[in-house]
Design a protein around this nucleic acid. Sequence first.
DNA 1: GAGGCGTGGAG
DNA 2: TCTCCAAGCCT
Length: 396
Amino acid sequence: MTEAVNIENGHDAKTVIRCRRLLLRWFAANARDLPWRRDREVYAVWISEIMLQQTQVQQALPYYQRFMKRFPTVAALAAAPLDAVLKAWEGMGYYARARNLHRAAGQIMERHGGHFPADPESVRALAGIGPYTAAAILSIAFNQPLAVVDGNVIRVLSRLHAWPGDAKTTSGKKEIQERAQSLLDPAAPGVFNEAMMELGALICTPQNPLCRACPLAACCQALAQGMPEKFPVKSAKKFRPHYQIAAGLIWKKEKLLIVRRPESGLLGGLWELPGGKQEAGEGLDETVAREAAEKLGIKIEVGSFFGHVDHAYTHFSITLHVYQCRHLQGTPHLIEHSDWRWVSIDELDDYAFSRSNRLIIDQLPMEVNYPPGHYSILSTAERAEKRKEKKSKKQN
DNA sequence: GAGGCGTGGAG
DNA sequence: TCTCCAAGCCT
C-alpha cells in the first residue's frame, strides 16, 4: 500500500528509506541550536510554531525569549490582558497570531483544564492552529506520525519530484500532503519534520540552493533536470497600490492623543496616532483635521510638519506624514476605533504600535519641554540626540 | 477560492 | 530602490 503510493509519487520504497536516513543524518549534524529545540515541552513548541508562521527564525528568536519569560505557562498567558500580549508581539507583524494565541490560551483553560490537548481534533479546534501547526505540535511534542507541509516542505518536495503542480490549489495541497506523509519517517516524525524544514531553510533555499551540500541531491529530480530553482512554480505577482497617509501628534497640554484600532483586521488592537488616507484634492494638513473630525468628533489645529516614513505592507504601501497639532475642542468619540487615551511621552512605550507609528514615536524627545501651543521647538538632530540618551538610559 | 494579514533580510 | 518571500490561518 505504502509502496504503491511511493512509486506513484516518483520514488520506490528503497529510495524513500535511503532519503529518510540521509536527511536525518544531515539534520543530526547540521541542526541549529534553537531554544525551542532544547526540550519538547508542548507549550514551548506551540509558542514557537505560532511565531514561526511566515516569520524567519532570526526574527522570531528575541521575541520568543521575551515571550516565554513574560508568559511562561498557558495559565499566565490566559490571565494576561490582550494588550500585554500585543505589546510583547509589537514589531513582529501578523498580529492576529497574538490575538489568536491569547484566545487559544483561554480555550485551553476552559476546555482542557489548562493542559494542552494531545488529540488532533482538539488541537485543530484551537484559535490560530491550522493543518500545519497542528501537525507540527503533535509530531514534535507528542511524537505523532503527522507530516507537516509548510513553505519549506512544498519547496523541497516540489524539487525532489520535479513536481509541476500548484501547492496553492486544493488538489495541489492534497497531493503535497500525501507525498509528505509518504516520506515521513514514522519512527521519528517530529525530528523528521524539523529536518525537512531545516533543509528548506538552510540548503534548499528559494534562490541559489546549495545543492552541492544537499544530502538528498542524488534523489532530486529537479537537480537532475538541471534547474532546481524552477520549482515550485510561482504565481504571477499582483500590483500593490501606494497610499498617502496623514496623522497628527495631537497635544493637549503635555499629553498626546492615541487611538486603538478595531480588534480585527489590519493591525487589529494596536494603538496609533489619529489620522487616515489623503483624499483627492486635499492637503495633508487638511487630511489630519478632517480625520480628527470625522473619526473622533474633535476639533484640532494643525501645525508644523514633523516627519514622514515609508512603509510596505503585504498588499499595499504607504507614506505616513505626521504633523504637530493642538487639541482645540471636543471629547473623542469612538466611531471606528476601539479606545482612545491621552498619554504622556513616557507612557507611549507601554502601548503596542505598528512599525510605521513606532518609527515616528521613537523620534519624539524624552519629555515635552515646551509650553502648550508651541510646536516642535526641537530640530530633527536634537530629537535624535535626545532619543539616543533615552535608549542608553534604558539599557542601564 | 481568493484575498487579507507585517515585517525584515537578501540579492 | 525594488522584488521576493519566510516554520500559515482565517474569512
